[in-house]
Amino acid sequence: MFGFCEDPSVLDTLPWFACYMTTGKMMLFYGSFGTVLVLLAITAPVALGFGFAGAMAARSHVAPVSWLGRIYIAMVRGVPDIVFFLFFIVALDQGFEWLRHKIKCPDWDQPIRQGSDFIVCAEAKLPLSTAPQVWHEVYGFSLAVLTFAIVFGAFAANVLYGAMRAVPRPQLETAEAYGMTRRQIFRRILVPQMWVYALPGLSNLWMVLIKATPLLFLLGVEDIVYWARELGGTKSPRFTDYPHGDWRVWFFLALLVFYLAFTRVSEIVLERIMKRLTRGQATLGGDAQRMA
């Protein structure tokens, strides 16, 4: 990066670090922070969508749909979320390939599971084995996003379902008295009012989501944990210009600080949003703001 980085072995401590911090590998490490943020930016709305669908399904008057919604909500209680992560990342992959296999190769006669192998025809592979490397990475990342969204969607569904039930009953009855249809009541009365009840749960969920992002590592994405382990390990002078001992503890300290800062900032922002949303609401928080 810098001109004086030509021969790191003769540098002083300070320039050495300046050079070390700007090597290509370190740039990949910094980039992986972007991976985490991208994951959060995509997962949060998708999970909210899943949650909304789940909560709507649970409220449905059609019994099987309602059961489905309730099962989805209850799914993540009682079982650690990491189990779902490890399960879905493989199950989704195999599910997609199986579907494509059924469509693309209808005259395939061998069983798909042969012992410990999962064999589909070559055209059904995802992504195709001829696809460039970048597509494999994109596919892996999208699977991870989908996995996160399914699991956190279930938590969001739980929160939204509770919030929908927390909207005061008279509000809905008044709407009925005005002759609104069920759909109208849902869109015009229930949904606008439920957010203030949902927000504490959702902000808690956001914090949990942030703290779940290191699990990307377990899903095979090259995220910050992966690079911290890679770069922190002992480097011998034979393979690198920047030999150092076992620095993994420092790398993980940096990650710890990153997460602390991230959650703290989120906390402050969410507090502000909550203040904004409670303004003028018929809740204790809203009353307190009027009196102040």
């Binding site: 703290k211 944990v225 076992d246 503890v249 990650l255 997460y259």
Partner: peptide, 13 residues
Amino acid sequence: GSPLFIQIFFAYF
């Protein structure tokens, strides 16, 4: 404020 996953990693190293 920090993930347990990172805490365990950090503690181990």
